[in-house]
């Protein structure tokens, strides 16, 4: 089942079209990463799905129900961007109040459990007014999961966190997925998305320019596999043929003493290359393959 589905979903402010007719489906159990630079339109998109703002045109449905719908809200957990919590309430009071509002009042034990998950176990009784940015962010995540929702929207859950906390949160998000939740998160951090997301959409200027699993995205962009080969000296007689063959097989060939670097567009070429070396009676000591990271893809576009 598609937990999230959008059809031609668009949003304009005045004459500026921020989201341009996005068609998207997210399957149940997916940890979906919405990747894009600042200003790409990630928050605008997620805010439409969560009912914070309304589409200018197009439709969406969550859990099979056309939105916005108040019943679906009960099964939804949301951490919006730039939202302050109530400075006069404690972390514990937040969780109690907000879970009750979602119709699934959390017990004290449950609140403590969730505070523990996000690393706020020692701050349950503290007023949020006294919280640091990172602590507020963690509580933002805690309130999004306290009522055990089926679908969780997280807008930049780790941005601004210290690396250690970011890893805690990433692990938490992965665990939520393992427990059957569908998670839709945005991020401008490639490595994070690369590390944890099962599906990734790359967004630019209000459009999705590419969508797929990390492997699919890589396969698509595999035109840039860099191969570094360390080899025994090439017999004089073979040098010309081998180099000529290599130049036809790949690009950006750089020759060094007993090593070379070349860029190929297909993994299969690597095996062919090794065969070519063997035929020329050249031993290969080491092959280093560097696949493009999402960052390369991302920056290229």
């Amino acid at each position: 089942m598609n937990v999230i589905e959008t059809k031609q979903l668009s949003k304009s402010y005045g004459s500026a079209q921020i989201i341009k007719a996005i068609d998207l489906s997210v399957k149940e159990g997916e940890l979906f990463g919405f990747l894009g630079r600042n200003g790409a339109g990630k928050s605008t998109f997620i805010n439409m799905l969560t009912g914070i703002i309304y589409p200018s045109s197009g439709t969406y449905s969550l859990l099979g129900v056309k939105g916005p719908n108040d019943q679906v809200k009960k099964r939804m957990g949301v951490m919006p961007d730039y939202s302050t919590l109530y400075s006069s309430l404690t972390a514990m009071e937040h969780l109690k109040f907000l879970s009750a509002l979602s119709g699934n009042s959390a017990s004290k034990v449950r609140c403590k459990e969730v505070l523990n998950l996000v690393g706020l176990q020692n701050h349950g009784g503290k007023k949020v007014g006294k919280f640091s940015f990172g602590m507020k962010k963690k509580l933002g995540i805690a309130q999004a999961i306290i009522h055990d929702p089926k679908i969780i929207f997280l807008d930049e859950p780790t941005s601004g966190l210290d690396p250690e906390s970011a890893i805690t949160i990433q692990k938490l998000i992965q665990n939520l997925q393992k427990n059957g939740k569908t998670i839709f998160m945005t991020s401008h951090n490639l490595h994070e998305v690369e590390k944890i997301c099962t599906q990734i959409a790359i967004m630019k200027d209000g459009q999705i320019i590419k969508i797929g699993t990390m492997d699919e995205l890589r396969a698509f962009y595999r035109s840039k596999i860099t191969v570094k080969i360390k080899h025994s000296p090439i017999p004089k007689a073979e040098q010309l043929t081998l180099y000529e063959w290599l130049e036809s097989a790949g690009s950006d060939l750089t020759k060094e003493v007993n090593s070379l670097t070349i860029t190929v567009d297909d993994e299969k070429k690597i095996a062919e290359m090794i065969r070519a070396f063997n035929q020329c009676k050249v031993d290969i000591f080491r092959v280093e393959v560097e696949e493009p990271s999402l960052e390369d893809i991302f920056l290229d576009e």
């Binding site: 009912g51 809200k73 949301v78 919590l85």
Partner: peptide, 13 residues
């Protein structure tokens, strides 16, 4: 103004 409303409207009508 403080956008705490977002925690409410995403949970209830």
């Amino acid at each position: 103004e403080e956008r705490t409303i977002r925690f409410l409207i995403t949970r209830t009508s």
